[in-house]
Each structure stands twice: as C-alpha cells, then as structure tokens.
C-alpha cells in the first residue's frame, strides 16, 4: 500500500518536472535556436582577423593621402610630378624585387654535415635538402627580411621555386649545389635570431649535424630578380 502511494508521488513530481521543462524550453526558444560554442568561436576569430585587416587598410589610406599631398605640392611648386613619380617608381621597383639592393643583413652558409654516420643512419640526415633551404627562407621572411638571395639568385616568394633537382637545388630555373649561401637584407639582430633561436629551423639543422654558419654584415649587395618575367595567362583586371 505504502509502495503505491510513493509511486503516485513520484509520478506527480515527474509530471510537474516535465511541464516545467517544456515551459522553460518554450520560453527560451521564442525565435532562438541552438548555438554551439564552435559557432561563437568561429565568428570571434573572423572579427579579429577583419579588424586587423581594417587597420592595415587605414594605414594604406593614410599613405595614399600623403602621396596625393606630395603630388599636389610638387605640381604647385614645379608644375609637374616627375620627381615624385620617380620616387614612387623606385619604391615599386624595390617591392617587385627587380632592382639590385644593398643594406645591412646576414649571410648564412649551409653545407652537408661532416660528422660520422651513426649505425644504420640514413645519409640523407646529413645532406641539405630543398625543404631545409625553403624553411630557412621562411624563417627569414617572417623575421622581416626585405630581400633574400640564394647563391646570388634573388628569391621572390610569389615567383621563385626552391626545388630538389638530384644533387642540386633549382632556384629560379638555375641549378645550385652545396654549399648554399643565403643572404638576407633586414634588421641584423632579428634575422640572426630567426636562424639561431631555439626551435627555429636553423637551430634544428645544426642539431642534426649539418654545417650552418650565420654572420651579420653591415653591407650586403643583392642582385635583382633577373629571370625574364613573361605573363602568359595573367592580365590586369579591367574595370
């Protein structure tokens, strides 16, 4: 008898719980739908990224305004914009990598390691590969290198390939063998750290036993990208 009574109590309590849950759900739902934390995370990231982009755009606008001012001043003072235009041309020549440049920077020499092989060790461990050179170049670019050359061949990230070619490496369609000499213009300390700091690729290579030497220099001369650029497929966009 007592058992039955408690069963009824439980039944009634559960009924009330159910009704409460449904009311609560309906109240909250009014037009809302389930939102996962993943969605929130994604949109937070998107906002962050776009805000940084906007800041860069604002800098660009400031730059353009300054440039227009310069043009107008030049027009007013000399009647034409030849001198300003020349400066502008120099800037874009520099940025496109066509011009020979000079400045302070670092010289990195990479060569095959000369330590004894361990038992059953793959000799590849001691050789310089295209991926090693590429990773070193990436580290330098990230550290703010303004110009990079491998064995005198200028590296342009959107044009240059660094590809294994048997015992040699192909850079801008030219073949180079070891030792590889990477020259980079930029802040000397930053560039040196980009190779030597723990966890940087240069540091790792040294630990493998490859020969790697970094020297800073106050004066480096890098030749321009001199492979002929012929666009077959690319056209400027028409408005």
């Amino acid at each position: 008898m007592k058992k039955r009574e408690s069963q009824i109590t439980v039944f009634i309590l559960l009924l009330i719980l159910g009704i409460l849950l449904i009311t609560q759900y309906k109240l909250v739902q009014s037009g809302n739908k389930y939102v996962s934390f993943k969605d929130i995370e994604i949109i937070t990231r998107k906002i962050e990224s776009k805000e940084i982009e906007n800041n860069i755009l604002r800098e660009k606008i400031n730059d353009l305004v300054k440039q227009i001012d310069e043009y107008e001043v030049s027009l007013y003072e000399t009647g034409d914009i030849e001198s300003v235009l020349k400066i502008e041309l120099e800037k874009y020549k520099k940025a496109s990598g066509i011009d020979a440049l000079y400045g302070p920077g670092v010289v990195i020499i990479v060569s095959d390691g000369d330590r004894q092989l361990l038992d059953n060790e793959n000799p590849n461990n001691l050789l310089v590969h295209d991926l090693d050179i590429q990773a070193l170049v990436d580290d330098l670019l990230e550290a703010g290198a303004e110009a990079i050359a491998i064995n005198g061949q200028r590296i342009i990230p959107h044009l240059t390939e660094i590809i294994c070619n048997g015992p040699t490496i192909r850079v801008n369609e030219e073949l180079y063998s070891q030792p590889f000499i990477i020259e980079a213009i930029g802040n000397r300390k930053h560039l040196e750290a980009a190779v030597n700091a723990p966890n940087k690729y240069g540091f790792v290579l040294k630990q493998w036993g490859l020969f790697l030497e970094v020297n800073t220099s106050i004066y480096l001369e890098l030749s321009g990208y001199d492979t002929k650029i012929e666009y077959e497929y690319l056209k400027p966009k028409e408005n």
């Binding site: 874009y92 940025a95 497929y233 966009k237």
Partner: peptide, 21 residues
Amino acid sequence: ISSQLEEYKLLGGFLDVQGEG
C-alpha cells in the same frame, strides 16, 4: 615613368589581375 610604374605594379602584385588558373 608612369607607364613603367604600372608595369612594376603589375610585377610586384599591386594591381588586381585576372586570368585562367
């Protein structure tokens, strides 16, 4: 100079471009 400027802008990636790819 200004036509050269356009050329270098194209080389350096400072113009919108189109093509197959």
